[in-house]
Design a protein around this nucleic acid. Structure first.
Lengths: 113, 113
DNA sequence: GCATTATATAAGCATGTAGTTATATACTTA
DNA sequence: TAAGTATATAACTACATGCTTATATAATGC
């Protein structure tokens, strides 16, 4: 039995995911925690733009933040009511691990604490 | 093995589905063909607004039109490259059959040919 | 304490979106 | 053929969105 979701909530979540930056962020976060500066490097946009995307995802509770020293790490919130729905979308998307791989090769991946 | 979809195509499709009117249309069309005037009655918006939503869905090939006399019927295009992805979203949505049910009770459902 | 780094927020701007009204096109029926 | 019904398109408008730059806040390290 699959988890159902209200039409209006579903449309809201799909709209959130209907942006290439946010969709990729969520796909990455589903596998790995990430900090803001990593996203800034992955996507070719300004830091405020990244913060604003993260805020939208956090506002609906789909991701959570945790400060670790100087950095703020974001992670997926699997307990969120929309997560099962989001997960069924993410399953259809190719892994974005190579984006973090590139950071590691450049030595800019933040491994903290 | 699930069908995969490019990130940019996925974001484009999710954006299309991230509107309550279009999402509901696609959910209905996944089960029943429908003509424009039925959608006009179901959603509380003008006929041009409905036509514009249908056009967006048709432009990516997700739905098809077929004229039947005076009416133009739309149907889902299961052969479309995005359909498997869309289907996995629709599976999580509650049936919208009651909307067509209401039309039948009012006697305004178009059964044609 | 001061400079540096990381992040968030505010403000402004250009573009996109969803709706409307007006009008054109196409089919049906008297 | 004329009137009515169904649909699409064009033009316009209000509002949303995603980006930018500027600035504020917070932690780090000298």
């Amino acid at each position: 039995m699959k988890t159902m979701i209200d039409m209006n909530k579903a449309a809201m979540v799909l709209k959130l995911l209907g942006d290439q930056t946010r969709l990729t962020m969520v796909k990455i976060l589903d596998q790995h925690d990430c900090c803001v500066c990593e996203f800034v490097e992955i996507f070719n946009v300004s830091q405020p733009s990244i913060s604003q995307h993260l805020r939208k995802l956090r506002d609906v509770g789909l991701i959570e933040e945790e400060r670790k020293g100087q950095w703020i790490f974001y992670s997926i919130n699997k307990a969120n009511e929309y997560y099962p729905f989001v997960e069924s979308v993410l399953e259809r998307l190719p892994s974005q691990d190579e984006k973090l791989q590139e950071l590691e090769e450049k030595g800019t991946r933040i491994i903290c604490c």
